[in-house]
C-alpha cells in the first residue's frame, strides 16, 4: 500500500492498488479486522477509479501559432 491519498491517485495507481487489495482479500490469509480495513480501502480505490472513468469527456482543441510558430492559444475543433 502506498501512502498517497486515494483522492490524488491516478487511475493507474488506484487500479494497481485495487487489484492488490482484491488479491489479498481473496487469499483469505488476512486477519478479520485487517480484512475489513482492506475492504474499506478497496471501496475507496474503486470509487476513485470510477471517478476517473467518468471523467471521459472529449474536448478537442487546436493550438494557434503566431508568425514565428509559437503557441498563442487554442481554438476549439469541432466536426471531426
Amino acid at each position: 500500500m502506498t501512502d498517497k491519498p486515494v483522492d490524488e491517485m491516478s487511475f493507474e495507481e488506484a487500479m494497481a492498488e485495487l487489484e492488490a487489495v482484491v488479491g489479498q482479500l481473496e487469499r483469505g490469509d488476512v486477519a478479520l479486522e485487517a480484512s475489513i480495513e482492506l475492504y474499506e480501502r478497496g471501496a475507496k480505490l474503486k470509487a476513485r477509479c470510477e471517478v476517473k472513468l467518468k471523467e471521459a469527456e472529449e474536448k478537442v482543441a487546436a493550438i494557434t501559432l503566431d508568425q514565428d510558430g509559437n503557441p498563442t492559444g487554442t481554438t476549439p475543433v469541432e466536426g471531426l
Binding site: 471521459a56 469527456e57 472529449e58 478537442v60
Partner: peptide, 9 residues
C-alpha cells in the same frame, strides 16, 4: 475513451 486532445498543426 474520450480524452482532451490538443492538436499542434
Amino acid at each position: 475513451f474520450p480524452r482532451k486532445v490538443l492538436i499542434w498543426p
